[in-house]
């Protein structure tokens, strides 16, 4: 199918884009990479009356280390995938990006677009939640920072105001003695994953677990933060026994998967448990090696 008619603006500067947002609010839909929005428009699931195309705004494409790692909202995923700063300062993000769809999609798809879209099955919201990423929302009146936890507000929903645009994302460094892993399982490489997670494990100096993060995709209405499972790991000696227990708690207590065409809710729980053990083992291997 083809999109329904709409008015189209492609401002060259952020200032003009914010002016359009101030004028049109929710009516003015921001177009980033379009890899989710345009398919939805082709199906007419989405019928925006006015598109504000952000692709000509060069100032929203950057990757720089300025204290922490900052990525411009309109930075293409394929660009971030190859960037040495991302590999060095946000290795979890670097590991997750190749799992986003296919190279053709990542050539257009943007870091900010995927985060603002807040698809529970997507990789980036999970990574952002695990890393306590901060989001810079800007309007014609000013800007503010939003914590990852407050940014994701449910199914395909973020907490920005109608006149705001996501302009940049700040990725804090991981704490010392922290290992990371991103793992997911899809029926074919590039498909939406049936289950997957981002894992972080931080060790105390004597080698026990100081803290951990386990954040899951596609098992709730947003990134699912397995707080009960993570609490169970605190003070434990890292290893198969502790990881297995955490995997059981996470998959039974911390998540409420809906199930879908390819995987029932029970199967999603099972996969999530298996992947949790793998992710924790991989994260632990990495922190030991470092």
């Amino acid at each position: 199918m083809k999109p329904a008619p709409f008015e189209y603006h492609a401002p060259d500067t952020l200032e003009e884009a914010l002016e359009l947002k101030a004028q049109h609010g929710d009516e003015g839909k921001a177009l980033a990479g379009g890899q989710s929005l345009i398919p939805a428009m082709n199906f007419r699931v989405a019928q925006p009356t006015l598109l504000i195309d952000l692709n000509r705004i060069g100032e929203l494409r950057y990757i720089r280390k300025n204290g922490v790692l900052h990525i411009g909202a309109m930075t293409q995923q394929s660009h971030a995938e190859r960037d040495p700063l991302v590999a060095k300062h946000a290795p979890l993000l670097h590991e997750a990006i190749p799992n986003i769809a296919h190279p053709q999609i990542r050539n257009r798809g943007t870091i900010g677009g995927s985060l603002a879209h807040a698809d529970p099955a997507a990789e980036l919201p999970v990574v952002a939640t695990a890393l306590n990423t901060r989001f810079r929302a800007q309007s014609a009146k000013g800007d503010r920072w939003i914590e990852a936890k407050a940014f994701f507000a449910g199914l395909f929903t973020n907490s920005m105001q109608p006149d705001e645009l996501l302009v940049g994302i700040a990725f804090p460094e991981m704490a010392e003695r922290t290992g990371y892993a991103f793992v997911e399982l899809a029926r074919r490489h590039g498909d939406y994953a049936m289950a997957g997670l981002a894992a972080l494990v931080t060790l105390n100096e004597e080698g026990t677990i100081k803290e951990s993060r386990l954040v899951y995709l596609n098992v709730g209405d947003g990134p699912v933060d397995a707080v009960t499972a993570c609490a169970s790991l605190i003070g434990k000696k890292p290893g198969d026994a502790a990881f297995k227990e955490a995997a059981q708690i996470a998959s039974q207590k911390d998540m409420e998967p809906f199930g879908n065409l390819h995987a029932s809710a029970d199967y999603q729980r099972h996969l999530s448990a298996v992947l949790t053990e793998r992710a924790l083992a991989k994260a632990y291997e990495r922190v030991k090696a470092a």
Partner: peptide, 27 residues
């Protein structure tokens, strides 16, 4: 497929492979 799944419409834009069915001509 017209929604970015099948890849039949892949072209190069500025040398990079992209799906032409989920891009607007005006872009």
């Amino acid at each position: 497929c017209e929604h970015g799944v099948c890849g039949a419409c892949t072209i190069l834009m500025d040398g990079k492979a992209v799906r032409s069915c989920i891009m607007l001509a005006v872009q």
